[in-house]
Every structure is written in structure tokens, then in C-alpha cells.
Design a binder for these strands. Sequence first.
DNA 1: TCTTTACTCAAGG
DNA 2: CCTTGAGTAAAGA
Length: 104
Amino acid sequence: MNPKSFKPFDERCYELLLKIPKGKVTTYKEMALVLGTKAYRAVGRAMAKNRDFVVVPCHRVVCSDGKVGGYANGVDQKIQLLEREGIPILRGKVVGLELVLYRF
DNA sequence: TCTTTACTCAAGG
DNA sequence: CCTTGAGTAAAGA
């Protein structure tokens, strides 16, 4: 067994996402950091292709700037979901990202 | 191999 | 606000 027998990159993202409690969010950057990579894009890309808008709370992932980023089901939908969980969003950006940012 | 992509950072306009 | 360029990793052609 070699130390490189890691699960698919996508699966890693999902596991992390599932750890995010309600009312909290994470950034693509934090995800990549925890996964031990710097390919912030790979994280977002994994979501885009899977768009687990039911299995995985990918709507709780935003940009490091607090910008909502994107959503396979529609960015507007993502914003509604976040606001519903108690996360205020203004002009497509999370208000007080640090306050709702879940750190692993 | 090349291009595109739900990213990020830095720099210039 | 915008675009470039560089860094990085995965999917598709």
C-alpha cells in the first residue's frame, strides 16, 4: 500500500463539505489547503461536474473573497440557500465571511 | 498535449 | 470595476 493511494480528488471535497455544519461555509482555498494541494480550481471543478445540490452541500462553498462563486443549479439558488441557513449575502458576496467560515 | 474550468494572488488600467 | 499572467490539478477532445 503506497501513500499515494488517495481517493479521487472529488471524493475528498465531498467529505469535507459534509463536515460543514449548518450556518457555516468554507472557501475553495481552505478546501485545497486541507486536501494538501494548491489547485483551488480542481476543488471547484469537482463540484461543477458533480453538482451534488442534494447529496453534498456544495452551496456552502464560496470564494476566499467572500464572493459566492458559482453554482450548477444557478448562483441565485445558491444565495437563497445560504441566506436560508443564516448567512447574509450582499450583492453576490457573503457578509462577514470570517464569522461563518468553518475551519477544519 | 492542449484547452477549459464554480480559484487565488499580484499588478496595471 | 476590468484584464493579464502565473501557479495548480482534473476532465474532455
